[in-house]
Design a protein around this nucleic acid. Structure first.
Lengths: 121, 121
DNA sequence: CAGCATCCGGCTTGATACTG
DNA sequence: CAGTATCAAGCCGGATGCTG
């Protein structure tokens, strides 16, 4: 916890048990990255997210959204209209994560055949 | 599940329920990325990994290692010695993932204060 | 040292019902 | 439409103990 075993060298990319873990735990759950990725092109409504992220339950979407809003990665805007409308959008902080999500997605696409082939054995 | 509810719009870089999900599910579990990151500087023994990745249980390390080997991200080499020695090492495929892990770690370090501040409210 | 077997608590999920 | 509340079920991960 006090963590950050001072690795003397120049800023090491990744110290095992410290700050990285702290944040990584938060974004590497099953849905967070998917939600962030879904918002890459702009704000989306609750229902739209539900349709975009195939397989997520209403409950998990609600919870994940809440966590991401708490972390400040996305913002929630409720419009006081007759059919209630709520939009979720990436914050500036959230946007800084986008390149990584994209990169991850591209990596996934690029190597999934290889991975699947490996798994098949 | 039948999934892929034809989103009328044009094919986005990251299709929600498809290949990305498939791979993302595999690497976005609690430990995989940590294990990959731990191997960034070269092969490590089981025990070394256990010490490096603070907090991981033996069971989860075993399982995670097994999965990563199956996926072909790391290789396992057992030396037939008196005290058994087993080393794990990134494969070429695994190495392609490293830059992303590094980037993720750097992002985490860079933004964790902000995230923690947000959460505090 | 490496890693498998077992028990168990918590999170994830799906379904359902209800509110603003 | 956009959630919240609740319950039952399943899977995952954690701790402990045992084996090759």
């Amino acid at each position: 916890m006090t963590g950050l075993t001072r690795t003397n060298s120049c800023p090491p990319p990744m110290d095992d048990g410290g700050a990285v873990r702290e944040v990584l735990d938060r974004i590497s759950d099953k849905w967070s990255l998917l939600v962030v990725g879904a918002l890459r092109e702009g704000p989306l409504r609750f229902g739209a997210l539900e349709k975009t992220i195939t397989g997520i339950s209403q409950r998990m979407l609600t919870l994940t959204l809440k966590h991401l809003v708490e972390d400040g990665l996305i913002s929630r805007t409720a419009y006081a209209e007759v059919p209630p409308r709520v939009e979720y959008e990436l914050t500036d902080l959230g946007k800084t994560l986008m390149p990584l999500v994209i990169a991850l997605a591209e990596w996934a696409l690029e190597h999934r055949d290889e991975i699947n082939a490996n798994r098949r054995r």
